[in-house]
Design a protein around this nucleic acid. Sequence first.
DNA 1: TGAGAAACGAGAGCAGTGCTCTCGTTTGTC
DNA 2: GACAAACGAGAGCACTGCTCTCGTTTCTCA
Lengths: 266, 266
Amino acid sequence: MIDLEHKSKSIAHICVVRSCNCLDCPSRWAAMASTERNESAGAGGVRARVRAELTAEIKAAATRQMAESGASALSLRAITRELGMASSAIYRYFASRDELLTALIIDAYNDVGVTVENAAASVPAGDRPGRFLALAVALRSWAIEHPNQYALIYGSPVPGYVAPEDTIASATRVPVVLLSLLLEGETEDSADQEGELADALRGLVDFTEGTISPDALALGVETWAELFGLLSLELFGHFENTVTDPERFFIHAVESMAARVLGDDG
Amino acid sequence: MIDLEHKSKSIAHICVVRSCNCLDCPSRWAAMASTERNESAGAGGVRARVRAELTAEIKAAATRQMAESGASALSLRAITRELGMASSAIYRYFASRDELLTALIIDAYNDVGVTVENAAASVPAGDRPGRFLALAVALRSWAIEHPNQYALIYGSPVPGYVAPEDTIASATRVPVVLLSLLLEGETEDSADQEGELADALRGLVDFTEGTISPDALALGVETWAELFGLLSLELFGHFENTVTDPERFFIHAVESMAARVLGDDG
DNA sequence: TGAGAAACGAGAGCAGTGCTCTCGTTTGTC
DNA sequence: GACAAACGAGAGCACTGCTCTCGTTTCTCA
């Protein structure tokens, strides 16, 4: 597996692979390890280990249940039944249904994140359209294999639910891969940070520390939007009787996006 | 208000305005009047009238409640409380929660449908980029004013819920406006209906009776996807800390799409 | 006009949910 | 070994969608 190279100077903090060792990234990656979050109470004790195991079992049962019936049909009582414990016991591990859902959301973000990272890294760095295609196809495959998890993170948020800080680091993995790929070679020492477009994309402009032109960033966000628009329309049933072969059309659209954003050259 | 002209020959059955009187459209529009669906029992009787009124009141209360707490928090019992009736009485009007939801979905599709149709029709037919911009801005405004209704129809479908036939006619209104606008003047007497792309878009190719090239159709679907991708990313919170001014960026993206799909000319 | 049928509203009830509280037990720590 | 924290189990609360029954109202048709 070939790592995406780390352009610490040209694209600040946009590090695609976990092995990146620039200043800011380690903390970001560390924050993503949601699985290890519940193991903090008691270091190496027996109790801590069985707690971690049960926490994982609960999440596994929840994931299984969600894959069958969707996120909003997820029932804490059904999980406790499956695990043979009292219905009240689950609250020792997750304070509420929302907290379990948040853990599942983080896991889903990380799952699709590593999938996309690996797909991009499996194509030589020089072949940008190839990487883009691999990335997009991997994203779609993941979405189709995990429709309910896709809906959980990219569909309508459950009412009243506000994503906690914990999720944002994991949530950025896919767009970061996408942007870092699309913007390779598009960087400047000091891009124009003024203007309407730069204002509209202020968050992104600051994130990239002004090394990328607002126009290039805008193209990247547009691509991001079309990618998820295609997937959402397909997965949520809006291609019925219209786009008869979504896979073939998806590849066509991805190639068209690649030509538009990356240019026609390899 | 200026009607979009009806190109019965060039774009078969893609009629943008309700006043269209081609062969196939009247039945389509008729099927969209979900409001009148429950009035069929008893023509002009008193009972039928109060039934229609109560049905409308239930839907109004449901819409109000959904606007506050989202679709999955919608409670039949809360509606009956608000209306001062027994909890069981609501089942005389809607056989299940899903049936109420379906009615709300149809209404939402029609609501956004007329909004977009009117916006497109408010710009002279010759100004295609202007129409596209008006259409897109109206679509976004509607989405922002009705976020929960947007999520209801374009977000993740509720688990186990399958859209009944009733919804598809209403659901096609927005894409039909979009496609008919994008494809004006792009028609041919007999476009190539073969090839991979035509196969992938078989449903659309058949719908347009082969008068539009698969390439043009693909561009239209891509635009559709980017439009809804932009809105979904924004409304579902994925632009947080990234696209700081979503409205401004949306307009930029729409103009970029218009230039790409409609060409740079007016 | 009056009888029968259909539609209706209200209430009780069932099975399910998220969540809380209490109580006795187990485990870890000083 | 004492004490506290963590834990599992159970009962219980308020809520949900939905069903069934029963008495009343309304419509229809002879």
